[in-house]
C-alpha cells in the first residue's frame, strides 16, 4: 500500500526539506510508523498518547481523519495523505 504524504513546512526538517514523501501502510497508524522508520522524529510531532495531536490536521484524500477513524482510518494504495498544522489560537 504505497501512499504519498504531503509534509507541511514546519515538519520538513524531518524529511530533508522534501514537500512530499512516499510511505506505506493499510491504516494511518501504519503509515505514520512507516514514516517514522524513514524520517525519525515525525511520529512524536503527529501522535501524542496514542491519538493524533490536536495541533495537526491529517487528511486521507479530502477527508479529515478525525471524522473517519483517526489513526485507524483506512488508507488505500495510491491515496494522498496530507498533514497540515491546525491554524488556531485564542486570547486565553
Amino acid at each position: 500500500m504505497a501512499v504519498t504524504v504531503s509534509i507541511p513546512t514546519i515538519l520538513r526538517t524531518h524529511t530533508a526539506g522534501e514537500k512530499s514523501v512516499q510511505a506505506s501502510g493499510a491504516t494511518l497508524a501504519e503509515v505514520i510508523d512507516n514514516l517514522e522508520a524513514n524520517h525519525g522524529g515525525l511520529k512524536s510531532r503527529l501522535v501524542k498518547d496514542g491519538v493524533l495531536h490536536r495541533f495537526v490536521n491529517v487528511y486521507v484524500n479530502d477527508e479529515d481523519v478525525r471524522f473517519s477513524g483517526g489513526l485507524e482510518a483506512k488508507v488505500a494504495d495510491g491515496d494522498n495523505v496530507t498533514i497540515l498544522p491546525a491554524v488556531a489560537g485564542g486570547s486565553r
Binding site: N57, Y59, D62, D64, R66, A86, A88, G90, S91
Partner: peptide
Amino acid sequence: ARSPTFYEFESGDLL
C-alpha cells in the same frame, strides 16, 4: 469556533 476567546480555521477550509 465562533468564539470571543478562540479561533480555528475549519478543517475543510484549511485543506
